[in-house]
Structure formats: C-alpha cells, structure tokens
Design a protein around this nucleic acid. Structure first.
Length: 374
DNA sequence: TACTCGTGGGT
DNA sequence: TACCCAAGAGT
C-alpha cells in the first residue's frame, strides 16, 4: 500500500471512529441474518415459539464448544430428556454418560442441579428475567442474557467470544483482552436493538463464527465492513489483542488396567468436584511432576498382580496442563480382592461391551484403548 | 483477579 | 509440531 493510500484509509477510519457503528448496525446485520439463517437444531424461525428448555440446553452445551461438536450431543440429550421435569428425574450418572466426551463436566452436573431447582421452585419453568436466571447453577452472565433474549424476547445482550471479537473490530478497540471485556460489553449493549435482540445476538455470533473469524476474516463478505473501524485501519486481523500465555506444565502418571478373566474392567468414580468430577477413571497413581519407577508406581496399584508395562504412553492435552500416562496391564481372576487404598467403595467392574454409554471422559477412553492394544 | 475446568479442529 | 480457539462459569 502506498503512503497516500494508507493516509486516505486512515482518515476514513478516523471518521468512522467518530461516528462509530450505531443505529444502522443492527438492521444491516439482521438483513444478513434473515437472508442466510443457518439451520441448527436449537434454532427457531420467525413464526415459531422458542422452547426455553431447548435454548437453555443448547446454550450450556455451546459454552466453549464448537457447533459441530454439540449437534449430536444436543439431539441425543433432547431425545432422552425432552423437558425440565424429565431431566430433574434422571440419574446424574446417566446424564454424565450422555455428556461423556463433550468436556467441561461441571456443566452437566450444574445442568442437573439446575433442573432440580427449576422443577422444585419454579414450577418446572425457567424464569424469564436475567436476574432470576443468574441465580441458577451453571447460568452465568452470558447464558442468562442469551436465554432471556432468545427464549423470551427480552432486550438483553449476551456477549461471548464472537461478540467480543466483532465489537473490538467494529470500534477498533486496541486494549488487549481480558482488560477490555467491560468496554466491549458496554459497546455491544449500545448496538443491541429493542426488538429482535435475540436474533441480533445470534446474528453477531454467526458473523463471528463464519465471517469475522479470528484469523483471515472475510471482510468482503461482511455486511458491516463499511462500518468497521478496524477494517478501515487495516488492523482487523490483529484484534482483539490478548496477553501472552505462559508455558503448559506436564504431569506424569501410571494407570492400572485391570482385566478380569470374565471380561470386566476395573473402573473408579472420581471425586464429585474438580477435574473430571464424578466421571469414571482407570485407577492410577497421583499425577506428579516426574515419572515414577515401575516398583514405586505399582505400590499404588489397586490389586496385587503381575503388572505388564504396555509399550508407549498416552498423551492428552487439557486446558492448563499436558498429561503423560504410562499404562500397566494385568489379567486377574474373578475373585480378586481390591486393596483398601484403591477406595473399593468407588470402584466398579464394567464389562468391555458396556463401556459405550458409560461416564468415561475421552482421556480415559484413550487409556483403555491403549491398554487393550495387541 | 487469576486460575480451574475438556476436547477436537484449524492453521 | 505447537500453538490457537470455541455460543463461559465457578471459585
């Protein structure tokens, strides 16, 4: 770009920053949304009445989770528990079993807890106001606003990562995340129309997901490009800025895959809170900062057996650390006794054919698959 | 406030 | 490969 062109572009951007995106933003975005509305299982057309339950389940599943990953889980969940009452009467283990693989399992526990509260205190109907929704387990500022706007048609401004990115670019907010969050929320609020605020929110999120993407945004396809200060400045791809992240630590552990002669595996339920809370696991040593020698590791084994080290390790990436697991395998008789330190009360024998549908997180399925190789 | 809490796909 | 990131909430 020549110096003259850059100067012209910059001057154009300055004028946009003064006028800002404004009252004309919502109509332009809603026209785009109406023309190309995506067909999603939780989405409603203009002549349909939204089911707050479906909106709630979808919004919780979509937290930090891609649309593609959510769709099959949403279908299965709604088929199994179509109403608040049905969910409130379910077993938590069954809910965790359906949720297994989707991640962030506190969402499933909170969803279940929330269903109980709504069934008991709200006549099995979700409250309409953001304030009341916020009091419920698993419903934070984003989800309260989303349910209020999408399911009940109230004026509310749910702000997720997409909206933050779109707004940061529209107004060329250079301040990095997360410090800029309050300002981005306020700016998003100024753009939200009194009518169709739910559609507006969904349109902003669709725009962020398909056009105003984190990398290489398709500005030529964007219905708001003429209002976008960052695009005018040529800095859209650099926004929103983020603080640099530290290194991801590594933890090491040894898992014990106990195969009973009748085809059952030994699994154990994890504590009800924290990482993979209330989900099933392959019993293992604690996850520490270094490998343990075989003899040392096997002192934590759940049964006395001839432990065979399976070749290779299982590696799994969590949000804030990487796990490296070595797997030991043993074939044991059906009357084997569990050691007390294995917490027998939490242990269960599950047949290999029944693993599907159980509350096994992905990392544990990986460990089992690795341990059963050959 | 900053950290915890999963997983899979994109670059 | 090693990041980044996705319709966030709880503590």
């Amino acid at each position: 770009m020549t110096a003259v062109a850059r100067k012209q572009r910059s001057a154009r951007a300055e004028s946009l920053i003064e006028t800002k995106a404004g009252p004309q933003t919502a109509p332009a975005l809603l026209s785009w949304y109406d023309a190309g509305n995506r067909d999603l299982p939780w989405r409603y057309g203009p002549d349909e009445t939204p089911d707050p339950y479906r909106v709630w389940i979808s919004e919780v599943m979509l937290q930090q989770t891609t649309v593609k990953a959510v769709i099959p889980y949403f279908e299965k969940f709604l088929q199994r528990w179509p109403t608040v009452k049905a969910l409130a009467k379910a077993d938590l283990d069954e809910v965790l079993g359906v949720w297994a693989g989707l991640g962030y399992y506190s969402r499933a526990r909170n969803l279940y807890a929330c269903a109980q509260v709504v069934a008991k205190n709200h006549k099995a109907k979700l409250p309409r106001s953001e304030t009341e929704l916020l009091k419920l387990p698993g419903i934070g500022p984003y989800t309260a606003a989303a349910i209020s706007a999408i399911a009940f048609g109230a004026r509310a401004s749910p702000v997720d990562g997409n909206v933050e990115r779109v707004v940061a670019r529209l107004f060329a907010v250079r301040e990095p995340m997360p410090a800029s969050k309050p300002r981005l929320r306020a700016l998003a609020g100024t753009l939200t129309p009194n009518k169709r605020s739910g559609d507006f929110a969904q349109a902003m999120m669709d725009l962020g997901a398909t056009v105003c993407t984190p990398k290489r945004p398709s500005c030529l396809m964007c219905p708001l490009h003429s209002q976008c200060a960052a695009h005018a400045l040529g800095i859209e791809e650099t926004l929103p800025g983020r603080a640099i992240k530290g290194e991801r630590p590594v933890r090491y552990g040894s898992a014990f895959l106990v195969l009973r002669e009748d085809g059952h595996l030994l699994l154990r339920q994890r504590p009800s809170a924290g990482l993979l809370g209330a989900m099933l696991e392959v019993p293992s040593t604690a996850w520490g900062e270094a490998w343990l020698a075989k003899d040392e590791a096997c002192r934590s084994a759940p049964v006395h057996a001839d432990w065979w080290p399976v070749a290779g390790n299982v590696s799994h990436i969590f949000t804030h650390f990487r796990l490296e697991m070595q797997v030991f395998r043993a074939l044991v008789p059906s009357d084997v006794q569990l050691h007390l330190w294995a917490e027998p009360d939490r242990c269960r024998w599950l047949h290999r054919r029944d693993l599907q549908g159980s509350a096994l997180p992905s990392v544990m399925k990986k460990i089992i698959a690795h341990g059963l190789k050959e």
